[in-house]
């Protein structure tokens, strides 16, 4: 007797969001990247469709980051120059470039101005071909100022602007609407606030196919289970028809994994049995990403080139059809 596979039938799906714009679409990108669109739980291809492969975004900054020794061999030659860094990220296999304008933080000694930021974005766009996401410096007022200038400078390129938060989303939403860009909405690992933020952004007039969610990731060993359960619950909501929980999700696997001592501590400072730093750090980031991939992440912000290789291989395996 043939075995009847019990299949869950869902009524909803994750919203599909396109990042970037090609020449025909009014931009200058060589290609666009589609996020989301799934009508089933992660990688259950036999129950629904997973039209878009999870994407890899490389993290780049407009100033030299404090990433230290583990990254010196990889980015040491480029991290003083965001354009060179962006080009290198493309060479290393970035689907998307994620630029954090950390240098505009007003707490710094010589903070960059909104105009400086706009120029940086413009030059990066002129010298690269991948779709771009841009995060402001994190300071509410400066964020608004910077992202407005960036939105104007990148008009037509369909970049993503972030981060919009519950208490500071109006100006960023306006900048996104003006330049016809996407917006990244972030909540502090809180599903209720995330949903409310999505409602407020939508009420501003942003189209659903322009919204990306950053529910904030936690790294492996530092509360990743909270991120996991929130993403899982949001995806379930999306699949049963909750449109305000149906936006593609970005996972901050790189930045979160490398905050953990387990990833960066050199051997002499390592805990018992931890082993060499290099493979340990690479695995820590890859494992963080792998867990968030299972939770339903649509795009992964990554840092270490070797972790990216592992993640890509893992995605290849998971994207193989498993139809019964």
């Amino acid at each position: 007797m043939p075995v009847q596979i019990l299949k869950e039938k869902f009524t909803g799906s994750v919203q599909e969001v396109v990042l970037g714009a090609t020449k025909e679409e009014g931009g200058t990108r060589a290609y666009t990247v589609k996020l989301g669109g799934s009508s089933t739980l992660p990688f259950l291809q036999y129950e629904g469709s997973i039209p878009n492969r999870p994407a890899i975004a490389f993290e780049i900054m407009d100033i030299k980051p404090e990433w230290g020794a583990p990254f010196e061999p990889y980015y040491g030659d480029v991290w003083n120059d965001p354009v060179a860094w962006a080009k290198k990220a493309e060479e290393l296999g970035a689907d998307v470039l994620y630029l954090k304008l950390a240098g505009a933080d007003p707490e710094l000694e010589n903070p960059k101005s909104a105009d400086d930021c706009a120029k940086t974005v413009k030059v990066i766009l002129e010298n690269t071909t991948a779709p771009l996401m841009v995060e402001g410096p994190g300071h509410p007022e400066k964020n608004n100022e910077v992202l407005q200038a960036v939105g104007e400078a990148a008009a037509g390129e369909n970049i993503a602007l972030g981060l919009a938060e519950k208490d500071n989303y109006r100006s960023i939403a306006a900048a996104a609407m003006m330049g016809k860009h996407c917006i990244i909405g972030r909540s502090p690992v809180d599903i209720n606030i995330l949903k409310q933020l999505n409602i407020m952004i939508t009420e501003m007039g942003i189209a659903p196919n322009k919204i990306i969610n950053d529910p904030m990731s936690s790294g492996l060993g530092y509360g990743i289970e909270y991120s996991y359960s929130i993403m899982e619950r949001a995806r379930w909501g999306a699949l049963i028809g909750d449109k305000m929980m149906a936006f593609p999700v970005i996972c901050l696997a790189g930045p979160e994994a490398w905050r953990a001592k387990e990833s960066y501590a050199p051997l002499e400072e390592a805990g018992p049995g931890w082993g060499e730093q290099k493979p340990r750090g690479i695995m820590w980031e890859a494992m963080t990403a792998a867990a968030l991939l299972q939770a339903g992440g649509d795009i992964f912000l990554m840092r270490h080139p070797e972790s990216v290789k592992l993640l890509k291989k893992h995605i290849d395996d998971l994207m193989k059809p498993n139809d019964y």
Binding site: I191, I193, K195, Q196, I199, R233
Partner: peptide, 13 residues
Amino acid sequence: AIYCDSYAKVFRQ
């Protein structure tokens, strides 16, 4: 339904 402050409003949509 997942709670949010506008839950009663979105219930109607």
